[in-house]
Amino acid sequence: MSLEWMFSIVENNWHLFLRAMGITLLIAIVGTIVGAVIGFIIGIIDTIPKKQTVKNYILRVINFILTCYVEFFRGTPMMVQAMIVYFGLDLAFGIDLNILTAGILVVSLNTGAYMAEIVRGGIIAIEKGQYEAAQAVGMTHFQTMVYVVLPQVWRNSLPATGNQLVMNIKDTAVLSVIGVNELFFQAKSISGANFRYFETFFIASILYLIMTFTATRLLRYMAKRLDGPQAYDKKEVL
């Protein structure tokens, strides 16, 4: 390994690395956010109280479809999912996705499947007393979820969401199979030209670390903000 090589690789390719980092971050961040939204929607649908009505029948069908979705995306490699989404959509529906869009879609759907489980568990973990207290002041199920339950679920699932973001930053690498120009793909193409595989990928690994480390810190900061001040100020009482 030679330091000179590293410097020269960075010097000659820094703009390519930066661009690739940008794409990696874009896919990971958008994918995590969209995935979290999908996860919350599924978690909410899944925990709607079941009553013996026609609406319930429709709910069951929806729940079945959602279960299939979750099982598929949790049970297959993301690399395979990327191939299926990118080539399959074209084949089946003639939808020719832009590669970047396909990448974001795959990561979103994948994250959504994991987040659905996290949110579902988070909703179930909220004490019954929270629902009952909300009902007792006359709130509907919807109001109870929006103002009482989901804010708590969101706070409790923030660490898991952070984990997903970190995983997504790393796992975007598999999107190179469909030609997404993210950091791994870029490193591969740079090293293919200079034949300095170790140095190039060493640089890539540092860049991945910078991104994941920053993401972890940012999320920890967010959680702290949500928790509010450690101590409350007692108001002066006359």
Binding site: G129, Q130, E132, A133, A136, V137, G138, M139, Y147, Q152
Partner: peptide, 29 residues
């Protein structure tokens, strides 16, 4: 829901909304 607003319930386990402060607990409903 409308009927329940006429009854104030106090639980053994308090059941304050954990995501809200004292004032917010009292104004949400």
């Amino acid at each position: 829901e409308a009927y329940r607003t006429h009854l104030g319930m106090v639980f053994q386990q308090f059941n304050l909304f954990n995501n809200l402060n004292v004032l917010e607990n009292c104004i949400l409903g």
